[in-house]
Design a protein around this nucleic acid. Structure first.
Lengths: 196, 196, 196, 196
DNA sequence: TATGAATGAGACTTCATTCAT
DNA sequence: CATGAATGAAGTCTCATTCAT
C-alpha cells in the first residue's frame, strides 16, 4: 500500500497516499457543492471548493457521471453498513425497518439533491443507479423480509419499490423548508402494515 | 389543411387560421416537450414542436414561468373539476379519494415532467405553485375531509402534504418504465386508513 | 429614390389629406421617440407612440433610413427658413451668424440624438446627409460670406466645415446634463474672428 | 520580462506570459474593431479579430464595460504621459497646448470610434469616463493653466470642457474622409486666444 | 389600407471540455 | 501530474421585417 522510495517501472502500482487523499478531497468538495448547487454545479465550482484545478477533477473522474457515482458510492457505503446493525439492535424487524428508513431519509435529506439524482435516467447514471440499488436494496430487502416473516407487514412490495418511493418522497425536502418528508414516509411505512 | 367549416376557396396556406389556435398549440407543444425534456427544455425546441418561431413563444409567454404556468393551469383545471364529480359518484368518500388520486397520478404520469415542476421552488415559479395548490388542494381537502368525517381515514394529514407526497411519488415514472408509482401511491393511501 | 406619390405608370397623384395627416403623426411620433430612445428605437415603440400599427410605419417609410430622413427633413426645413430672416434683422452679419448658429444648436440639442445621426455614415443615410447639407449649408454659407465680406471673420473656413463642427460639438449634450455645448460653440465662433 | 529566479524551480509560472500576450492581442483587436464598428461591436467580431474564442474575451473582460475601459486605459496612458514632456520641450505653453491637442486629435482620429465612447453616459461607463478624465484632464489643465498664466489665452474655459469639445470635433473623422477635424480644432484653439 | 402576430437572424453569456505549459 | 486559459456549442432574448386578415 505504499511505494516507499520506489520509483519508476512498477507494473500495477497502488495509488500513492497523496493521490488518495486528493481524491477524498475531491469527493468531499463535490458532495458539498452538490448540496449547495445541485449535481449540475459547474465543474469550476467543485474544483475551486477542492482547491484544485479543473483538470484534476477530470483526471480522477473523466465524466460528470463518474464524479457523481463516486460521491454516491461514498455515501451509500455508510448507509448500507448501518442496515444489519439495526436489525440486530431493534425490538422488532418492523422497528428496524422504520429506523433504517429514517436513516435513509436523513441521509437523502441531509445530502442536498441526492434524492433528485436517484431518479435520474440520464445516460451514464445507470451505473450509479445500479450500484446504489445493488448495495442498498439487499439491505432493505433483508429488513423487509424479516418484517414480513414476522407477520408485521404485507409482503407484496419489493425492496426496490419501497426504496424508490422513499427516495422520491425526499425530493425537494432540502430546498423547501415547508416540506417535511418524514411524515409522508411514516404514512407510507404505515401503509405496509398487514391489513386486518 | 382545414378551413374550420369555412368553404372559402383560399388556395394559399391558411396560415393565419392556424395562428388563431396558436396559443392552444403552444400549450400542447410545451406540455409535450416538457414531458420529453423537462421544463428547462430549450425554447427553440418548444417552438419547433409547435411549428412556430421562437418569437411566438415569447409573445404569448414573456417568461418561461409564464409558459409553465399556462401549461399547468391548463392541466390543473381539468383535474380540479373532476374532484367534486367523483365524490358524488363514488361508493364512499375514501373510494372517491382513491379515484381522484388515481386521476391525479394519471395526470402527472402522463404529462411527463409535471411532477418535477411541482416541487420546484425557483423564483417565478411561486405563482405556478400557488395556483396549482390553490386550485387542487381544496379539492383534495374536500375529499380528505369527507373520508375523515366518515371515519375511514386518519385526519392528521393535510391535503397539501398528501398531494405533495403523491406528486413526488410520480416523479420519474415517465422516464423509467420499470417504475410504477401507482403501487406506491396505493400503499401511501392505505397508510391513511384509520389505525385500529 | 423617393419621388412622392409617383409610382408604376401613375401620373403624379397628390396625397390624400388624411394620408398626409397620418404621415405628420408618424413623424411627430418618431421625432419624439428618437428624442427618448435614439434613432435606433424599436419600430414598435414608434408605432405605439403614433397609435398605429407597425405596418403603417413601413408603408409610409419602407426603411428606417426613410423614416429618419423624413424626420430630419421636417426639422431642417424650419431651421433653413430662419437663416435669411436673421441676416436681415441682425445688427451685423457676424451677429446674424452667431444667432443662427445658436438656433442651430438649439435645434440639435433639443432634438435628442439628432447630432449623432448627422455624423453617421451608414448606408442610406447619405441621402439624409446630402439633403441636410443641401438645405442648410447654403444658408450658413450666406451668413458666413456676409460676415467675411464685412471683414468680421476669416474667410478660409467653409460653411460645411463649420456646420459639421457645430453639429459635432452638440453631440451628447442631450444625454449628459453636465455638458454645455454652447460655450464651446461660442469659442469656435470666436475662433473665426479675423486675427489681428 | 523573465521569471527572475529561474533556478528557484517554480514549475507553475510560465502560462502567465502567454496570457498577458493574449490580453494585449485582445486590446488591440478590440480597439481595431471599435474603430470599424463602434463600441457596440459584437463580441464575436472582436474575438474573431483577435483570433480567439469568445470565452476568452469574457475571461479577461467579464463585461463590455471592462473591455472598453481596458482599451481606453491602454490608449489614455500613452497620451497622458506625452503631456508634461511637451510642455518642457515647446517654445511656449500655448504651443505646447496646441501640440498636445494635436496629439490628442491624432490619438482619437486614429483610434476610430474612441471619441464616440468619450461622450457615452451609459451605466458602467462611468468608470471609463472617470478614469479617462482623471488621467487626461489634469494634463490638459496643466497646459491650459500654463498658457493662461503666460497671458496667451483666456482663462475661463475648463480643461474638461476643452477636451470634451476636441473629442467631439473628432467624432466621425475616421469614417468620413471628407471630414478633417484638425482645421476645426485649430479654429477652436484659436478661439481661446486672449481677446484684445 | 391598417393591423399586429409570426418569423428568425443575431447578439449575449455560460460552462463543459481540451490541452499547452 | 496539476493547472487554468482557451474554445465553442448551446441556450436565452430582442427586434426588424413580413404578411394574413
Amino acid at each position: 500500500m505504499n511505494d516507499g522510495g520506489k520509483s519508476s517501472g512498477h507494473p500495477s502500482r497502488p495509488k500513492r497516499a497523496d493521490a488518495r487523499r486528493n481524491e477524498k478531497t475531491l469527493l468531499d468538495a463535490a458532495a458539498s457543492v452538490f448540496v449547495e448547487s445541485g449535481v449540475d454545479a459547474p465543474v469550476r465550482d467543485i474544483a475551486a471548493k477542492a482547491g484544485v484545478g479543473m483538470g484534476t477533477i477530470y483526471r480522477h473522474f473523466p465524466t460528470r457521471a463518474d464524479l457523481i457515482i463516486a460521491v454516491y458510492r461514498h455515501q451509500v457505503e455508510a448507509c448500507a453498513e448501518a442496515g444489519p446493525a439495526l436489525l440486530e439492535s431493534s425490538a422488532s424487524p418492523y422497528a428496524a425497518l422504520k429506523s433504517w428508513i429514517d436513516l435513509f431519509v436523513d441521509f437523502l435529506v441531509t445530502k442536498h439533491g441526492l434524492a433528485g439524482v436517484l431518479r435520474s435516467d440520464n445516460a451514464g447514471f445507470d451505473a450509479l443507479h445500479a450500484y446504489f440499488l445493488d448495495r442498498l436494496v439487499p439491505v432493505c430487502a433483508q429488513l423487509l423480509e424479516a418484517a414480513a416473516d414476522a407477520g408485521e407487514i404485507r409482503s407484496d412490495l419489493k425492496a426496490i419499490e419501497l426504496m424508490r418511493g422513499v427516495g422520491n418522497l425526499c425530493i425537494g425536502a432540502d430546498t423547501d423548508p415547508r416540506y417535511e418528508p418524514r411524515r409522508l414516509v411514516e404514512v407510507l411505512i404505515a401503509g405496509l402494515r398487514r391489513p386486518h
